[in-house]
């Protein structure tokens, strides 16, 4: 078994190198430009002017956590201050 390990590692390394090469080869112009354009469109859309501002009242909510248990904002606030961070996701 131990003898097979270097071979597997080499194959994985080759695969990773291949992925990286194809990423570098295909990403440049089109993807980076599109991402840049989409970011600029969001900035000019005025969306950031409509977000919840300091001094306003936060909405009450209840959402399931990673194991499906409901977490309610007012319950959290009964214990302390809530730091709420929104993220798009992890893929």
């Amino acid at each position: 078994m131990a003898g097979e390990e270097p071979k597997l590692t080499l194959e994985l390394q080759k695969e990773l190198d291949g992925l990286r090469e194809s990423y570098l080869a295909t990403t440049p112009a089109d993807v980076t430009e599109t991402v840049q354009r989409a970011t600029e469109q969001l900035l000019v859309s005025g969306i950031t002017e409509r977000t919840l501002k300091v001094g306003t009242r936060a909405p009450e909510f209840s959402l399931p956590n990673a194991v499906g248990r409901e977490v309610r904002l007012s319950t959290v606030l009964a214990r302390g201050t809530a730091v709420i961070t929104f993220y798009r996701g992890v893929w």
Partner: peptide
């Protein structure tokens, strides 16, 4: 985005 909400529900 990140928000801090105090005990009175204020951002």
């Amino acid at each position: 985005g990140t928000f801090i909400v105090d005990r009175s529900m204020t951002v």
